[in-house]
């Protein structure tokens, strides 16, 4: 996998904490591998929108990576509920369904960005940098054991 400069939180230089939401175990593993290669840490995982809401409350992540098509509660509704409860939540939608209406609906509900699957690590990295803004800083290459 490509090497990325580790992204850490500006305030305490700790790894960015992620909540990964996808009904596909494979997709969660894939995204987890990517964010770890960015120096991040997966604080929690969820396979549907309802669990995503409770996991958000429990883990208070810096970023939520949220799929759209899921059982029980879809990602856009879950994102809306999370943001309604915590307007500072950073939710990035990650879905293979990338048509305009879906993207607009997600952004109107307060999502910060949209990444279409298959996810390219370099695209996700840039989106995370953009969404974190001044709250994240790149500190160096990631090693297999953690940040350098």
């Amino acid at each position: 996998m490509e090497q990325f400069a580790a992204l850490v939180r500006s305030k305490d230089k700790q790894p960015i904490r992620y909540l990964v939401v996808d009904d596909s175990v494979f997709a969660r593993k894939n995204v987890t591998k990517m964010v770890e290669s960015f120096g991040g840490q997966v604080a929690g995982e969820a396979g549907d929108g309802c669990t995503a809401i409770t996991e958000y409350e429990r883990t208070k992540p810096d970023i939520v990576l949220m799929d759209i098509t899921m059982p029980q509660m879809e990602g856009i509704e879950a994102a809306e509920r999370i943001i309604r409860h915590d307007p500072s939540a950073r939710v990035v939608m990650v879905s293979s369904v990338g048509y305009q209406e879906n993207i607009v609906a997600a952004l109107q509900k307060g999502a910060k960005h949209f990444v279409q699957k298959p996810v390219k690590p370099e695209v996700l990295y840039e989106v995370i940098k953009y969404v974190m803004g001044d709250d994240a800083v790149a500190v160096g290459a990631v090693t297999s054991g953690g940040n350098q």
Binding site: S24, T69, G98, Y99, K117
Partner: peptide, 15 residues
């Protein structure tokens, strides 16, 4: 993995 492959194919086609 096959589920995710199906999701990718169908999601991109529906887009």
């Amino acid at each position: 993995a096959i589920f995710e492959l199906a999701n990718l194919v169908i999601g991109n086609a529906v887009t």
